[in-house]
Design a protein around this nucleic acid. Structure first.
Lengths: 220, 220
DNA sequence: ACAAATATTTAGATTTGTCTAAATTTATAT
DNA sequence: ATATAAATTTAGACAAATCTAAATATTTGT
């Protein structure tokens, strides 16, 4: 697989994830920031390598083989992201570009050892799931803390209310986007929630809980 | 710089290191496992980018700019090798191929952070020096322990006497190629040497010291 | 249903890095 | 010194990945 082929496979995967109908040439061209004619050329090539099912004018979808390839690339990308954030101290929102390069490094042994070294993480710094070596993974969903059941664990990925006051509150309490957060207790009385972030336990009000999004793994 | 350009620059650097006369087209072709005509094409291209001084039929040498580029690539290669061995647990003799890929990753911030994370190592797992960000580095030489002065510190890189008995001795005493070794004391009387390896102190006979090569940094 | 709009593919050109074969330059040996 | 050998460059071709422009297929609106 060339670098370019891998990028196309990944793009098709991201466009087609979950959906049933095939992906259009145009959609791929937009995603890859290239021309539809270039996409057509590549689709023929990938079809010849059994990575995609391609019917002229009818769009394209990944074969079993293509999907496993995509998942292997995504696995590498996300493991490298964990490395960059957890080990090298990058911020969660500045790792994508470098991981786009690192995901193309070819060495199964490297990825196995990296996975072990990182403690076999299940999610990347954005809360997205990391596929296993065999290509299995749980989907993730973005939900408000207030919508999640007790015991949920996820990554802070966004806020509903981006007012300066709210962001300041988060900052003051040492909560940053990218942090892992666990729901310990919920108070029916006032909707307040006990959480654990960065090894600290704290209680947040219903108002906070209704404004902070967590990316959590679906429970199968 | 493309991947291919970087590989040529590195090859020219390795062939020309220290020598005064320019590098021949043929030598580069052998090193790169390619045809002389391909080399000629690339030399024209690199010359246009001010990376090499090239005179038809007269060979080539790196410009200042080309040399700094080479050193930056070597820096990246060797830092990644340290990472693979120290952090991921690769053996010192199985990292080269992966490092050849990793050295092309483009991100100054990544290399800065990696360097810090690894504790600013001065040598790679083969005992070769790691150039600084500015392209400065001490040369290294391969010498027998018996030839080195007190206080020398280096990496075990080879043996003079590869007899089964000698290799077995090293193994039994927990000395492997790639280990860092320090010379603590030398006994004039019998030529025996006190050394530190893997946080253990031990005494080796003159016979051992005359058969084990260390790669050490030159003292300027 | 069919003309117009949109999407897709084909044809032909371009760039990068490579190759072989032929031409040219430099080195060597008597 | 000059013929021969060796090294190097040039010329022309090729594969990968891209592009533009033209041709063709599909979809949509009335």
């Amino acid at each position: 697989m060339t670098l370019s082929e891998e990028d196309y496979i990944k793009a098709i995967y991201h466009l087609g994830s979950g959906k049933e109908q095939p992906i259009s040439t145009n959609a791929i061209a937009v995603q890859m920031e290239t021309k539809p004619s270039s996409v057509t050329d590549m689709l023929k090539k990938l079809s010849g390598k059994n990575m995609v099912k391609y019917k002229k004018y009818k769009g394209v979808s990944l074969t079993e083989h293509g999907e496993l390839t995509a998942l292997s690339i995504i696995r590498k990308h996300r493991l490298w992201e964990v490395f960059l954030v957890d080990k090298l101290g990058f911020a969660w929102d500045e790792v994508h570009e470098v991981a786009e390069q690192l995901e193309h490094i070819k060495s199964d042994k490297l990825i196995d050892k990296l996975d072990t070294y990182l403690g076999n993480p299940r999610v990347d710094p954005h809360g997205d799931p990391i596929p296993s070596k065999e290509g299995e993974f749980k989907k993730s969903v973005k939900k408000l803390i207030s919508e999640l059941p007790l015991g949920s664990e996820g990554v802070c990925v966004g806020v509903n209310d981006s007012s300066a006051a709210f962001l300041k509150f988060l900052d003051k309490n040492g909560i940053s986007l990218g942090d892992t957060l666990k729901i310990l207790e919920k108070e029916d009385f006032d909707g307040s929630v006990s959480i654990e972030v960065n090894n600290k336990e704290m209680r947040i009000s219903d108002q906070i809980a209704s404004n902070l999004f967590l990316e959590v793994l679906e429970k199968n």
